[in-house]
Write a protein that binds this DNA or RNA. Structure first.
Lengths: 295, 295
DNA sequence: AAAAAAATTATACTACTGGTATAAAAATCA
DNA sequence: TGATTTTTATACCAGTAGTATAATTTTTTT
């Protein structure tokens, strides 16, 4: 993305934090970021689209920071989860993301509302998978309930805690307290077997492509990484690394992946690697074919 | 209030429910309720003031319905509490009050924001007193925490439950589930002695006059009722009933209670009643004097 | 360095908003 | 009936989001 465009988004974000979204006029953004109206409408077709660009960046930043903490760690460790939530909460606070989302949810713009909805569901889905890590498969019927209630408890605690302590906010305290509560609630509902939401609701809410894309991304990543590390032949290493990178990039990042090119490259590679990495090659083949079948 | 004015508020409420507050222009309200702009601004100085008038009515309706359920009942009965919350939730749903409040909280209108804040704190205060009834004095250090979390849990459960079940919303199920959770949380925090909010925060948040007014209202009511029923002298009954009603009305409903008038009437009465209702007369005297000291 | 292309600016414009002002008409009251 | 209040219709103001366009500046290509 253009540097100037990014700068405009940053300046607008600053204004949204200070005055709120509604109260910030486009003229304010123009003055504050020193661009003309024409340029603004060259970058964004509306104030709402600027907002979406901002939200995408904030979400991305959040996911990044959050996932960084988990790599190579024990997923069932509650402390890791607490750290992740702390990071999330701190970023929310810094970016005033929650009040921005709440405000903007009433903008009557379908795209924005959908975007926020998907964002919240993704958080729910993340919590669901993390709770599954932490509490184990046997608690599954109650995990969606607890994920939902956790967002509510954390949100309300943070809201009133902020109101009570103005600037000296001990995020860790609020997060730990809220996590303690949900741990206890999980025990409680598992024992009394009370259930409010059917577990399959989450899958029903989240459009398939969102889920599928994520799963696909992880699968292709795993398979290609395995294949890369399996190449012993140093003579051909450069060639096949290039091939694998090409396939990965084409499938994950290209707007219209070139089917025949990908399949051709794959078949070239299959000839040589098939005997040594049978399992992974097969997995990759399945991934590629199902990918093109879908689209 | 004028019937026509009430009608305008109703029509506006209808529009707010359908389109939201921001999205409803004053012109919409004029067209929908069939009045002219001049009349509108004769009734309300702005759209925001119309909103405040609406919110006042809705809050009043809610308090009424809620308190009706408690009279003559056992305050520690959890079932009564559940009924009260159900009524509250049903009215919220019917009036779309929650989303209206959330939307309007970003209106940058100080008065509205303050009004909503006070409203929420009053709900919290109500929950606090009800939890005190139900869970007992010994749980007091944790009652504010639980009141806060209860609002969060109920809110989030209702939100996702509505999303999942569209129109077939079983309010009772959501309320009962949420109440079960808070009962368990209360046990949990009382046992682990974890506390997030200091109990005195609520008193600190709610401006004194709000609390004091309520307390004062109840005290004066109690004292005067006791005095009324204590009058045995049928000859003087009419006279003293008139006196007591006057004092009560003057202190509770007059904009500027006439101090000397009230004190004079009270002293007239004191002469005759002092021996028979010593205690109550004294209590009333204290109430009157502290009342005028304050203002 | 020159030419072409793209980005940016300033400005004027439309249609709408909330809110003000006012004179005429209608309803209410004494 | 006559006076007073309420209501209406209308024109008006300043501010909003967004469009259109011609002129200018910057970047890219040759």
């Amino acid at each position: 993305m253009n540097d100037r465009k990014k700068h405009v988004i940053m300046m607008a974000h600053q204004l949204f934090i200070e005055k709120g979204f509604q109260a910030t006029s486009i003229q304010d953004i123009l003055d504050y970021s020193g661009i003309s109206k024409g340029t603004f409408y060259n970058y964004f077709s509306s104030k709402n689209e600027l907002l979406i660009a901002l939200l995408k960046e904030l979400y991305f930043e959040m996911e990044q920071a959050q996932n960084k903490l988990l790599v190579g760690q024990d997923a069932s460790d509650l402390e890791i989860f607490i750290k992740q939530v702390e990071v999330q909460t701190e970023l929310n606070r810094k970016n005033k993301l929650i009040s921005l989302l709440e405000e903007v949810n009433f903008s009557n713009d379908k795209e924005i509302i959908h975007f926020i909805r998907i964002g919240q569901l993704k958080i729910l889905k993340w919590l669901h998978s993390r709770f599954l890590d932490i509490f184990g498969k046997e608690k599954e019927p109650y995990i969606l309930d607890c994920a939902i209630m956790f967002t509510g408890i954390l949100h309300i605690n943070f809201k009133y805690y902020s109101a009570a302590h103005e600037k000296n906010i001990n995020i860790s305290k609020v997060v730990r307290y809220s996590v303690s509560r949900i741990v206890s609630i999980m025990e409680d509902v598992a024992k009394s077997k009370e259930q409010l939401f059917e577990p399959q609701l989450l899958g029903h809410w989240l459009p398939k492509n969102h889920q599928q894309k994520k799963v696909f991304q992880r699968d292709i990543d795993k398979t290609i990484t395995a294949l890369k590390s399996g190449i012993k032949d140093t003579d051909l290493e450069d060639k096949y690394l290039e091939f694998l990178d090409f396939i990965q990039d084409e499938l994950l990042h290209a707007k219209k992946p070139r089917r025949h090119l990908v399949e051709n490259v794959f078949n070239e590679m299959k000839k040589d690697l098939s005997p040594t990495n049978k399992k992974e090659i097969f997995a990759l083949e399945v991934l590629i074919s199902t990918y093109f079948q879908r689209s």
